[in-house]
Write a protein that binds this DNA or RNA. Structure first.
Length: 193
DNA sequence: CTGAAGATGCCCT
DNA sequence: GGGCATCTTCAGT
C-alpha cells in the first residue's frame, strides 16, 4: 500500500488519466476510511480543449488551482453535486483528470450511509455520485494528494478501453475526442447517455 | 448586485 | 426521455 508520490502526477495528462485506472482513492474522515478503485476517468487538456474550463488559458478563481502544481485537487460544483479532478500538467499548464467512477473496496457501510436507498452499483458510478458516497466536498479545493484526508495509493493494473467524453455537447470537435478511459467490463463504470 | 449557465442525477410519465 | 433541483462562479450592469 504505497502512496503515489508527486512524480506520478507529472506524466502527461492523457497518460495520467490512463495510469489512474486501477489505483485506490482513499478518503479518511470522521466516520472512518473509505477506499475505492478508480475505474473511469476523463482527461481535460486545458488551453487547447474547448470542453475544459481552462480553455484558452482562462484563469479565474475557479480554475486557478489547475495552473498550479499537479497532484492537487480541483473540485467544483455542478448543480447539486461536487465533481472531483486531479490537477495535471506542469505549473502554468491548466490541465486535469476528472474521476468519473470508483469501485468500493473498503468502507461500504459508510458509503451505504451516505447513499441510502441507492442500489449498490448506482452508488459510485458517476462523478457526482462518488463524491457524495465518499463525503468529498468543496472544502477539498486545492488539497494536496500527499496529505490526509484524501490521497491515492498504488492499486492494481487493469484492462481498459477509451471512448468520447460524457456530457459535453456544443463544444465543436472537442466532443469527440477519445479522452474518456474506463476499466473493461467493470460494473461500476458510469452509463452512457 | 443580478442573472445565466453548467464536465449531473433523480424522479416522473 | 424530459423536467428540475439548487449551488457556485463569473460577466455584465
Amino acid at each position: 500500500m504505497k502512496r503515489l508520490d508527486p512524480s506520478f502526477y507529472e506524466q502527461p495528462t492523457i497518460e495520467l488519466a490512463r495510469s489512474l485506472l486501477g489505483q485506490y482513492l482513499v478518503h479518511n474522515h470522521l466516520d472512518g476510511q473509505i477506499v475505492g478503485k478508480i475505474v473511469e476517468t476523463e482527461a481535460y487538456l486545458g488551453a487547447v480543449d474547448r470542453a475544459a474550463h481552462s480553455f484558452g488559458g482562462r484563469r479565474t478563481n475557479r480554475t486557478e488551482v489547475m495552473f498550479g502544481m499537479p497532484g492537487h485537487v480541483y473540485t467544483y460544483q455542478m448543480h447539486t453535486h461536487t465533481l472531483l479532478n486531479v490537477v495535471s500538467g506542469p505549473v502554468g499548464t491548466p490541465e486535469a483528470v476528472l474521476i468519473r467512477a470508483i469501485e468500493p473496496i473498503e468502507g461500504q457501510a459508510i458509503i451505504e450511509a451516505n447513499r441510502p436507498g441507492i442500489k449498490r452499483f448506482d452508488q459510485t458510478n458517476g462523478p457526482g455520485k462518488l463524491t457524495k458516497a465518499l463525503g468529498i466536498t468543496m472544502d477539498l479545493y486545492g488539497h494536496s494528494l500527499q496529505h490526509e484526508p484524501l490521497y491515492i495509493i498504488e492499486g492494481e493494473s487493469v484492462d481498459f478501453e477509451a471512448g468520447p467524453r460524457v456530457g459535453i455537447p456544443n463544444t465543436g470537435e472537442a466532443r469527440d475526442y477519445p479522452y474518456r478511459f474506463f476499466e473493461r467490463d467493470n460494473p461500476y463504470v458510469s452509463k452512457f447517455r
